[in-house]
Design a protein around this nucleic acid. Sequence first.
DNA 1: TCGTTATTAAATATTATTCGCAATAATACA
DNA 2: TGTATTATTGCGAATAATATTTAATAACGA
Lengths: 151, 151
Amino acid sequence: MSLYTAASLKAELNDRGWRLTPQRQTILQVFQNLARGKHLSAEELHDLLQGEGEQISLSTIYRTLKLMARMGLLRELELAEGHKHYEINQPYPYHHHHLLCVRCNKTIEFKNDTILKIGSKQAKKDGFHLLDCQLTIHAICPSCQRALLPV
Amino acid sequence: MSLYTAASLKAELNDRGWRLTPQRQTILQVFQNLARGKHLSAEELHDLLQGEGEQISLSTIYRTLKLMARMGLLRELELAEGHKHYEINQPYPYHHHHLLCVRCNKTIEFKNDTILKIGSKQAKKDGFHLLDCQLTIHAICPSCQRALLPV
DNA sequence: TCGTTATTAAATATTATTCGCAATAATACA
DNA sequence: TGTATTATTGCGAATAATATTTAATAACGA
Ligand SMILES: [Mn+2]
Ligand SMILES: [Mn+2]
Ligand SMILES: [Zn+2]
Ligand SMILES: [Zn+2]
């Protein structure tokens, strides 16, 4: 399950002229141990770390999340109005997608192997190097449908 | 092509206790006439309208974009860091997806009928009312691959 | 072990988006 | 067709997520 060890993360970083820091290691650790279906915002990650006694500045958290998303280690998700959420980017058997209620932000994860295949094929066709591939279904959940009208 | 006339937009709005205003009509008009492959941010739409002599406040633009996205008339896309883009939400034959370079934001549109089917099926299965279904492929384009390292 | 330089924490800046409000105008209905 | 109701607008101000600047620190390669 745990794709990156300290050593492999270091290699991945050093390859690009970057450095392995305790902060980066800790943050990746958190995402690797996060329960399935959980997603964290920068703020939430900050709070979680504080709770564990880890003192990592919010700036560093923002920088690290962005860096790791661009490396393909994390997925950057738009699951709520106003801020991003992150989760570990897992390959094939764990790869999944999101069904989202635009009113209450209820999120359901689902798997579908076809989508990743389509995405990989398309990226390859255009010569892009694939980082992530995410289907987001914007919809209205059953309970929000019942609670009619109000936006 | 033009899915909504003034009359049908009015009906759609009034059904929910909302009103048809010249501003809403104008904004939907712009998106319906937008060239294939073009996406607009709130700011860009504002500038475009100004250029045409239409004076619609930025507040109204933000409100309208959000409203229409939640109605399913527009698609809200995350194609760049920091701000959203919008396009008209077209059904089946025009429905498409995006391949995006996370470094330079180069965007390629592509079609795939399977994805919409998967999305519809999943939404139905969970009792959600589908608004939009978008596959976003995060990747690195060929020229950014060549321009190595720099983030 | 040392020098170089990427990274950090903290404070500050930026900027997309929202909100409060008073004025206006779309709609329902008499 | 006129009137009352209230959703919507434009403006300015507020908010909040994220970026940036800086000096101090600490990884890394030699
Ligand atoms: Mn997920
Ligand atoms: Mn598009
Ligand atoms: Zn809901
Ligand atoms: Zn690029």
